[in-house]
Design a protein around this nucleic acid. Sequence first.
RNA 1: GCCAGCGUAGCUCAGUCGGUAGAGCAACUGAUUUGUAAUCAGUCGGUCGCCGGUUCAAGUCCGGCCGCUGGCUCCA
Length: 576
Amino acid sequence: MADYPLETLRHSAAHLMAAAVKSLFGNVRFDIGPAIEEGFYYDFDMEHRLVPEDLKRIEKAMQKLAARRLPFERQEVSRAEAEALFRAEGQTYKLERLADVPAGEAVTLYRCGEFTDLCRGPHVEHSGHVKAVKLLSIAGSYYRGDEHNPMLQRVYGTAFPSQEELDAYIQRLEEAKRRDHRRIGKELDLFSISEVVGPGLICWHPKGARIRHLIESFWREEHYANGYELLYTPHIGRAELWQASGHLDFYRDSMYAPMDIEDTPYYVKPMNCPFHIEIYKSSSRSYRDLPLRWAELGTVYRYEKSGVLHGLMRVRGFTQDDAHIICTPEQIEDEIATVLRFSLAMWKAFGFAEIKAYLATRPEKAVGDPERWETALASLRKAIEREGLDCQVDEGGGAFYGPKIDLKIRDAIGRQWQTTTIQFDFNEPERFDMTYVAADGARHRPYMVHRALLGSLERFFGILTEHYAGAFPLWLSPEQVRILPVGENFLELARRIADDLKQRHIRAMVDTQSDTIGAKIRRAQHERIPYMLVVGAREQESGQVSVRSRGEGELGAWSVAAFADRLSEEIAGRKP
RNA sequence: GCCAGCGUAGCUCAGUCGGUAGAGCAACUGAUUUGUAAUCAGUCGGUCGCCGGUUCAAGUCCGGCCGCUGGCUCCA
């Protein structure tokens, strides 16, 4: 059997699915059905409302079509012929898509059984190659992704060359489900979202809050060590501020309605930058003061449509690990290189090694001096090169106010997450008339860079939870050691050891339940406690503890001091 | 917001044709005093998301609303 690229196979699977849908539901108008990263989809418009049970039916119909080994027949036709065909079949979307095919480009059709599609190809030879297929979900999707257009019904599926690979993929999906931060967050009592408090608003429980605190402490220390100063700014600001910044003009849709304070409108902040700029403007600045690196764990609130909320990953109130770097043109290159390196070090500390950069350049409509854009872009490029990062360029993908680098990190099961963003801003310095006095005695406009490393603490916490499947590294574990007395006679001993460890800055608790040792271990394992100490008569006698690690199992007898040293070393090294 | 699905005890879930709401785990109480992933027994626990309708009777059927899940668009 010929080996086809995965994309070709999946694209053919999409066609086959369309053919199956046509055979089952008759009057169907087809849009498009491409291969995507993890599979394929096809968009349909028809009377019948698809329900989950339909997926099985469609799959069966596909299998039948596959068994017939129907050839995929390529046909090059004139534009008029294609038009006539689709018009006769009432395929209005296809007619519109046909109009998108650039003049002069050949129009090709692919026919498989009863189904003929406008398609560039290529395809597999015949439907028999499409074997290992699974339909995954039904979703609504606006025609051309525009919410003003009609909503089509989309069916997602995936296909692989072999059943084994398909099974492995399905297993990966199950693994992702097992690691889901919403599930683990509940299981480990880390956070909750209350309908009464409001959707998209996170309540951090003691254990989750403890982990967050540890993350924040580390973050603050690292920022001070890397030349940042930390700020605190209010949660609300006068409308005047948001008018000046331009947010009321460009960002209003994401902002909540104003509140009235003694006849003055105030807005809850969706961003921290205007406050930082006001601090900048609180005194006159000299080139000798620059660069300024001001960071804040700033909690912002943004309106998100109800349908897009998702656990900790997409919320309405979140805390950005924000910073603004304000510097002279001469400093830009070093500043960017430094912030990128800092970011990579941060990710490494949290156990992420695979990082990809995305560079977004000047869009059509943009503000700011083109020369500044060039300088800024060059500094971003150079920094990426210096760090030897894998990089993809998104031409014209930058914001109207400046170019940016986004970093995507890959987690333990291969999923990518957008986190870090390093973004130039040529708009706000202008709008707020930010200046510094240079060596020449004249006022100059500084460069300003927004950056968030972890992104938001909520999303980062979600990613971290899934990355570690809830088994946080020792330095981040809310409870690092649990002491399990063999019987109640050893409760006192257990408490003494716990106190000893606490004195050594190790978070230790005693399991005081009257359960068997097996039950206590089981409980501690489920709670992902990194270390368990079993203590009983033997330990009382020897003065040692019996150590069990959540990952490695039994580690034998240790003195408390030696055990504490091992842990201290592991904590200090922030071993992932 | 839109399309589809879902919402039963703290958690995971069962509940037939419309006919007195159930299990396991957790919690609590008692017994047990345990040696490396579940000791035993008992007790408690429910406005079946909310509001309305149909019916002699609604967890179950119908309508509206809220929330969640998967997508669409956007994004930290």
